[in-house]
Every structure is written in C-alpha cells, then in structure tokens.
Design a binder for these strands. Structure first.
Lengths: 224, 224
DNA sequence: AGAATACTTCGATGAAGGACGAACTATGCG
DNA sequence: CGCATAGTTCGTCCTTCATCGAAGTATTCT
C-alpha cells in the first residue's frame, strides 16, 4: 500500500520498554556491555541478548567485541537524533510518569546526553550564550553569532564544522522542559569540561558532577 | 528503572504498520478522514478507528469535526519532525523494500512532505540555493546567507522567523537519499509554488505535478 | 587442563494487542 | 420520517512476541 522506508520496523524496535531503556541508556554516549544493558533495562540476560540482536539487525546499534566483553553503542548521530526527537514528543505530550525524586537530583543538575551536556546547567549555559549573542536562536534553530568564533577560540574550541553534523542544534531537555545545546559545539564544550576536570562522570550513570572549583570555573566562563 | 518521558509508548504507537502508514499519509500535510486513512493503511474501518483513537490518546493527532466527517491531522511540527527522523533512520539502515516502480515516478520527482516540497526537484533546489550561497549549509544545519533576505523578498517571501519553528532545516529525502529544505522557508516556498499555480497536488496522493509553464517558471527562479 | 565469567541459543509459556463482523450512534438528504 | 453515509463500540479470534530457565559456546584466569 505504501512505498518508501519501513518506518514501522524501526519504530517498533524502539517501542518495546526494555529496548527503549537500553537505547536511552546508550544516549549516555558510552558503549555498554550486554550485562550492563540487561541491568539497565531490568530484564534477564537472555532477554537482553535477544533484544540486542534485534537492535543490531535493525541497524540501530554497533558492536565492538573486546575479549569476552561485547560493547554495544548507538549506530550514530542519526540514530541519536531520532531518539531525541521521540523523547521530545514523549516529553511534551506525555502525562509524565515522572517523579523527580531526590534520587536523580544530580541528573537534573547536569548529565550527559549522547555526547553533550544536558540538565539545568546546560539549559542555563545556552540561555546565557544566547543573551550574550554569541549564539543566535530561532526556537529550535541555533546559529553562530558574530563573536562566536573568537569567543570559543579563546577556550580552545574551533567552531568550524568539519564533521558531518550540525555545529549547533537545540535538544529538548526532559527534566527542565527547555532546550540545551547539542551538535558538534555542544560536544566540544562537554569535552572541554571533562578535559579540564571541572566535572567528572558519575559511575554507572549519566550524571555529571561538578567539583566546587570546577563549578566556579564553568560559571565564570559560561554563565558570567 | 528509568526516569523521564515514556519514549516506548510513543514509539510503539508509530511501530504498528497500519498506524505508521496513517502517519506517513498525514505527512502530506492535509488532514484526512477516518475512511481515507483506513484505505491508506489497508485496514477495515473499525480497525482504523481503533488505531486513530490510540493515536489521539497518545497526543500525536488533532481532530477537527465537520458535520459527519472527522478530519485527523498531525498534532504539530514536533510530531512531523519525529516522523521525519524515524523515516531518515529507516531509509539509511533499511534494506529498502523499495521498488521504484513507474507508479510513483511522479512522487520521486516532486511531492509534499508535511508542509514543504520533497523529491528530485526539491533536492535540486536546495543544492542550487547552497551553490548560490543564498543558503549556507553544514550538513544538516542550514542557515541564511547574506543575500537570503533580498533574494526571497523579491519572491514575496519574508524570511524573518516569526513562528516557533526553525526557518531552515534539512530533511532527508527517502527517494533520492539526499536532503531537501524544510522549516518555515521550505513551507513558504511550497505555498508560493501552489499559489502561483506552477504545480498542483495530485488528488489522493502526496505527488506534486508541475505544469509545463510552471516548471519553466520554477526552474527560472530556483534552479537558474 | 579445569574453572569461572560473559554471552547466546533453544524451548516452552503466557500475555498483549491487532484483526474483523455485527451492532450501535450520529449526521445529512429527500 | 426513512434511508444512506460516516464513524465508533463491542466481542471474539488469533497471531505475535516478550519473558525466563536450562543448556550451549567463547574467552580469560590460574
């Protein structure tokens, strides 16, 4: 009846809770082993293995075998973008099954979203960059302002786009319900934050924890 | 186990073939009745009705009742964007169950994608606009060039973004496997094409058919 | 080699949900 | 009012697929 790509096939892969949890976990940007993903999804190892082979077959994941460990990761930015888009819709239409408990307070403040920073800090950063006209924003569309090149060069970040991805992009933050910065620039900023050791990634979590001094440095540079 | 929006719920709504066909049909931009959608999805009326109420409950559709007709349409640009993202992934990973038969030759040349033009013509147009530096492109990120405002003003199109949507955006074309122009600018250009009667929409299809004179005019303006 | 860890495959079970026909409601037309 | 068209609701059938335990393969450790 219909022509074109088989969108139901892809969507139904994401449409299972266990697989959706795995994909969400992989939005953390680092590849995870089958056991870790089983834990994350709350299913047994055999079940997880079955899901993983389906996701592989569907082309949503990549696999890197290292000895007896098999590391699964998102197949690429396009897949990550799709997950973001679905998350965005779910966040805006969904009757929130959210309970912003103290448990994930750290997640609300700052966390990793595939390869860039998300959470309150990230939202505040984007707001400030737009205020200072370093970035210029039309809702979901973000582009570089006049001063962007020099502003980021001073931080050792090259804004010239060499990669096959947008430099800037808005990514809806599910915890704050406002956008933060994605794209190569967002990824470069997260790199910088971790490289300078302003913050470290919490083990087994997407949370990003700033050190007291790191927080000062970050705020001086991005929120001043 | 996991917090945040219920992405599996949304994805599983799209993950059923019948519903996916309906949503794809609605990417045509015009609202359709329950019977039309049933036909499009290849299911009986009761089945379609059941699917439609699920999609409504999920917040993916809007409903406008007119007499005994009930017109269903996509809930908004965010939902359309999600469908695009899924379609993009499906097109790039999928082993194409495509048979580019002569039947949809017209679709390959030009068709509607929610509210903008897609197909070979649209891809060629974007290429040309980038060549002429009217638009500047970093892969999926597209922004206005210096000459954009005057260029489009001459066509009666205002590029200032008033709406809550990006002005320009790249949208992956499943038939050509390259990008065409979406966003408010893409929508405005399609409006212009239809308003000037350079082309008309094929009945019961997303295909857009240019008249001989209209094709000349379009090519003169956008492909010269 | 033998044992332990990491993961997959197999087989059986069970629940979720997609399908349609028949009956019901609502709007329009003569 | 009676008939036709548009759509929904109900009940039932039936397929699909997620789940897990048990057994099998692969890799590393000692």
């Amino acid at each position: 009846m219909r022509e074109g790509p088989d969108i139901a096939r892809i969507a139904s892969l994401v449409g299972d809770p266990a697989r959706a949890n795995m994909l969400t976990a992989l939005m953390g940007g680092t590849a995870l082993t089958a056991s870790e993903l089983a834990l994350e999804a709350g299913v047994s190892l055999p079940t997880a293995s079955s899901h993983l082979s389906k996701l592989m077959e569907g082309g949503l994941l990549t696999l890197a075998s290292q000895g007896r460990h098999r590391y699964y990761g998102l197949a690429g930015p396009q897949v990550a973008g799709m997950i973001e888009a679905i998350t965005g819709v779910a966040a805006s239409v969904g009757p929130q099954r959210v309970r912003p408990g103290p448990r994930d307070a750290a997640m609300r403040v700052a966390r990793v979203c595939y390869d860039h920073l998300a959470g309150e800090q990230a939202v505040a950063m984007l707001d400030r960059l737009v205020d200072k006209k370093v970035l210029i924003r039309d809702d979901n569309d973000i582009r570089l302002g006049q001063s962007a090149a020099s502003h980021f060069a001073a931080l050792g970040i090259d804004v010239e786009s060499k990669a096959r991805r947008p430099v800037c992009r808005a990514c809806l933050d599910w915890s704050v319900r406002r956008s933060h910065l994605a794209g190569t620039l967002g990824a470069a900023i997260l790199d910088k934050i971790l490289l300078e050791k302003w913050a470290r990634r919490e083990k087994d979590s997407r949370a990003v924890v700033f050190s007291p001094l790191g927080k000062q440095a970050f705020e001086k540079v991005f929120l001043a």
